Amino acid sequence: MTHDFFLIGVDGGGTGTRVVLGDAQGRELVQAASGPSGLGLGVARAWQSIQAACGEAFERVGVTLDWSRCVLGCGLAGVNNRDWLAEFYALAPKLAGLAVETDAYTTLLGAHGGAPGVVVALGTGSVAASLASDGGFRMASGYGFPSGDEASGAWLGLRLIVHAQQALDGRVPHDDLVEALLAHTGAQDRDSLVVWLCAADQTAYARLAPIALEHRAHPFAARLLGVAGVEVGKMIAALDDTGTLPVALCGGLGAPLREYVPQIYQARLREPLADSARGGLQLARREAERLAGR
């Protein structure tokens, strides 16, 4: 690899894409963001979002984007689906290099700097991962919306909207929490909510999650957030038999949900050293070194 190449770390989820542009040595130059690039929302859409974010990053440093000079390290939601992953590689532009891992792995790289530890990434979806002292990598959760991704934004949003449905029917009280949920969806009644539901995807549900935090004193929201914390604790326990590894809560919901994690884990919680996009930059650097050694 020469000084003419650029390393790019990509963090792609169901809500948005963040990239970190670095030079050939991995020194960070600039950051940029764009729309979702989780593979479950469509592989072509993922590449559109990645290209938009990369284009913005290059524009900020005053350089024309040339894929042939770029090595990408991508941490993406949905790469466990082999068909989606194969399509992602097939649709890739002509890059100097491309390394793709689950966003859980790049989150782990960023959070603990490659050292042993546990991460619980809480965003649109959720996934937990651990790196043991022997280098072993394990994952928990992250099975995808709607059946998994406990404690994620989409998981919270789905339960919130069920509560709003019950309120419209008179099964639970119609109060300020319900009004906030309906206002977000633009629904006034049963039929208009059904219209919203028919178009809603995981991103739409995840955008409801902040309403639970804004109404955290509401009995339903308080219970829901408490359950989310318990689910985070179950992920940590599943990934660390020793009960000793440091734990970083990452993603947009990591900090807001910290207080709901059971007390037994609180002393092990650490602030992440860096984010998944910077973990992707580490991945890109490894790929560049691998290519240089061939």
Rank of each mutant, 00 (worst) to 15 (best):
L76P: 15
A86N: 15
V120G: 07
H112V: 03
V120A: 06
G117V: 09
Y105F: 09
L91K: 14
W67Q: 13
D83V: 03
V119D: 15
R69L: 14
V100I: 07
G113C: 02
G125M: 00
T102K: 09
R82G: 09
L95I: 03
V79K: 05
V71I: 15
K94T: 01
V79I: 13
V119I: 15
G113Y: 05
V120H: 05
A77Q: 04
V118A: 01
L85Q: 15
A96L: 04
L72M: 13
R82H: 04
T102V: 01
C74W: 09
W67C: 05
L122P: 15
V118C: 15
G73P: 12
A99E: 15
G73D: 12
P93Y: 00
N80P: 02
V71S: 11
E87V: 02
E101I: 00
L85E: 15
T102R: 09
L91G: 05
V71N: 12
E87D: 15
Y105G: 07
T106C: 12
L91P: 03
L108E: 13
A99D: 10
G123D: 09
F88M: 07
G123K: 07
V100D: 13
A77G: 10
A90G: 08
E87N: 01
G78N: 07
A121S: 14
L85G: 13
V120P: 10
Y105E: 12
V79P: 12
P116T: 07
L98H: 11
G123S: 06
G75V: 02
N80G: 03
L91D: 07
W84I: 00
G75L: 04
V100N: 11
P93Q: 13
D83Y: 01
A86L: 08
F88K: 11
A96W: 07
T106H: 08
S68P: 00
A99K: 11
G97M: 05
H112E: 14
V79A: 02
T124R: 08
G97A: 05
G114C: 14
T102A: 14
D83E: 12
S68W: 02
L98K: 08
C74I: 01
A77T: 12
A104I: 02
G78D: 10
W84Y: 10
A121C: 12
D83K: 07
G114Y: 10
L95C: 08
T102G: 13
W67S: 07
Y105D: 02
G110S: 01
G73Y: 04
A90E: 15
P116D: 06
A115L: 14
L91R: 14
E87S: 06
A96C: 05
V100S: 08
A111C: 13
L76Y: 10
G78E: 14
D83N: 13
A104P: 00
E101F: 04
L108P: 10
C70V: 12
G113S: 05
A99R: 13
G110F: 04
L109T: 01
D83C: 00
G113V: 03
G125F: 00
G75F: 04
G110H: 03
G117N: 09
T102W: 04
P116V: 00
T107N: 13
D83W: 00
H112M: 06
V120W: 09
E101T: 05
T106D: 14
P116G: 01
W84M: 15
G97P: 11
R82F: 08
V118P: 06
F88Q: 11
W84G: 04
G123V: 04
